[in-house]
Design a protein around this nucleic acid. Structure first.
Length: 515
RNA sequence: UCCUCCUUAGCUCAGUUGGUUAGAGCGUCGGACUGUUAAUCCGCAGGUCCUAGGUUCAAGUCCUAGAGGAGGAGCCA
């Protein structure tokens, strides 16, 4: 039995233009941009499925229609009829030669132009910013990642079971939570579904949750959101080594799926996909916390180099790049001073602005490296890694790095202690390359009831709220493990975005609640 | 909570040791142009220089306080 989507209307979507070469079709969408020549209007149409240039020629349409086309403004909505013609120069490879045009909705003084805007302005207009090409590409990739994540787990026999969002207490202690009211009780928005995931894994074997999580950390960095989506698989009868195997094949699967199915979007984002070239073939490095610390402190060589040497080489390269950019600016400025036509001058000035911007970014980077070297050298064994420490580790490799066997003191109460070395807990963090930070955190869960009891006391957590959780250890407890993947950090890494706030339609972060 | 930087036209920004009537590009609007790719060319309009106070003959520029924003630290996915 096959299912057929109902034929609701005869409108052809832009993504399907390739199937109608030479045919006359009806389509509808919004005007992204318009260029005019005498007797010619070039409309860049978007309909959510893609982008296409539509040409209105005064010879082909009535005077009324041509005038309507001539008056179209950015983001007005239109219904078009026309012939689909192949043109290699176009984004989708096809353009529409318009024979009929109908204005659906007007648009006056649309605030977002094709020129650059500052982040605050764009965020205030997030509801409209979503219409831009770049945001379209990011949301398409986000969508594909979600699809790939679900496909991977469903194929592997995981059951999707969701955890509650209202919770009576903090699951992990440390983090600040958003408080709320639940009838007459105090409640908090969930920071993780972890504990509930364990209960569901004891019922279903292998499960995953996929939902929003909330953290009231006053973090203003490119890696933080107050509301973000997390995928948390939990597997009965798995230890941490098996957990790491799952994480690695999972990441390989979803990255490959996006690379294969989002070529247009990645191209539009100008994402350098060569950074992913070793993802499928190379085994992700698995470092113990101790080994990672040695790398940070420059005691351990990778490919014959210490982290300090790599950082110093990077710094030298950055400085050279800054010098090169400065030289190019000088040359361009000289050219402008010599007198050139307006078009050429704009072009040169634009290039100069880009270079200046780059220099600014490079200088910030170059300024950071000595700080990183210093903070790496002073790293104290037993501490958690800071942002710079993570970067130092990941620059040594071109694939994600797994760090496991952490000091138990800096990890959550439910993490399993290593029987061989009691100071360590069997947790694992996965660090994404290029400074995108920790995308996965997970580990094996403690099964020893007494250890759990003492840990809950140690963390000063309310024992009463954990009684149901401790039941899981009383009735047929088994070794189990799981992890959490931050969706937005993963999207940011895949897309190569500067900031995580572009990776979710309406971001919530410290200082931003609307739109 | 702490550190650094920013706030000038609708947008992105420049504005010299404080000195006449505050500038540019883009966008809008009007015009030219029959294949444009952020089109190009010509023209018009557009300002509470974040707010309050202070120094000064004179403040966009200096000082103090406040508001808003960006980046980072800590914390984290």
């Amino acid at each position: 039995m096959s299912f057929q989507f109902p034929k609701i209307n005869k409108m052809i979507q832009i993504k399907d233009f390739k199937n109608f070469d030479g045919k006359t079709v009806d389509t509808q969408g919004w005007v992204m941009n318009k260029r005019s020549g005498k007797g010619l209007e070039f409309i860049i149409l978007r309909d959510g499925s893609g982008f296409a240039q539509c040409i209105v020629n005064a010879d082909d349409v009535s005077e009324d229609i041509f005038n309507t086309a001539n008056k179209l403004t950015q983001e007005s909505s239109v219904k078009l009829s026309g012939k689909i013609v192949k043109d290699e120069k176009q984004i989708g490879g096809y353009e529409l030669h318009v024979t009929d045009l109908e204005l659906i909705g007007t648009s006056v003084d649309y605030p977002i132009s094709n020129k650059e805007h500052g982040i605050e302005f764009l965020m205030d207009h997030r509801h409209l910013w979503l219409r831009s090409k770049r945001q379209w590409a990011i949301l398409k990739i986000r969508n594909r990642l979600i699809y790939a994540i679900n496909t991977f787990f469903q194929k592997e026999g995981f059951v999707q079971t969701d955890s509650p969002i209202f919770t009576p207490n903090a699951a992990e202690g440390s983090t600040t939570l958003f408080s709320s009211k639940y009838y007459d009780d105090d409640a908090y928005l969930a920071q993780t579904g972890q504990l509930y995931g364990e209960a569901m894994a004891m019922a279903m074997g292998k499960i995953y949750t996929f939902g929003p999580t909330f953290r009231a950390e006053k973090s203003k960095t490119r890696r933080h959101l107050s509301e973000f989506w997390m995928i948390e698989p939990e597997m009965a009868f798995h230890d941490n080594a098996m957990n790491m195997d799952v994480i690695e094949s999972f990441l390989k699967y979803i990255i490959n799926d996006v690379l294969e199915n989002c070529k247009t979007e990645l191209e539009l984002l100008e994402r350098d996909t060569t950074v992913f070239k070793n993802i499928s073939s190379e085994r992700f490095p698995r470092l113990t916390y101790d080994e990672a610390v040695d790398i940070i402190k420059g005691k351990k060589k990778i490919n014959g180099k210490t982290s300090i040497e790599v950082l110093e080489a990077d710094l030298k390269e950055l400085k050279q790049q800054i010098e090169d950019n400065k030289a190019e600016i000088k040359a361009k400025e000289k050219e402008i001073a010599g007198g050139v036509k307006k078009g050429k001058r704009n072009f040169l000035q634009n290039r100069i602005d880009t270079l200046k911007n780059d220099i600014h970014k490079l200088e910030i980077k170059a300024g950071n490296i000595p700080k990183w070297i210093e903070s790496a050298a002073n790293f104290e064994y037993g501490n958690d890694f800071g942002g710079s420490d993570e970067t130092v580790i990941t620059i040594m490799f071109d694939v994600p790095v797994m760090v496991y066997n952490w000091p138990h003191k800096i990890k959550a109460f439910y993490m399993k202690r290593d029987a061989a070395s009691p100071e360590l807990a069997k947790g694992v963090d996965v660090l994404a390359p290029e400074g995108y930070g920790e995308i996965v955190g997970g580990g094996e869960r403690e099964t020893d009831l007494n250890l759990l009891l003492s840990k809950i006391e140690e963390h000063k957590l309310p024992m009463k709220e954990f009684e149901w959780y401790l039941d899981l250890r009383k009735y047929g407890s088994v070794p189990h493990a799981g992890f959490g993947l931050g969706l937005e950090r993963t999207v940011a890494w895949v897309c190569g975005t500067q900031h995580i706030r572009e990776t979710i339609p309406f971001p919530r972060y410290y200082g931003r609640l609307r739109p």
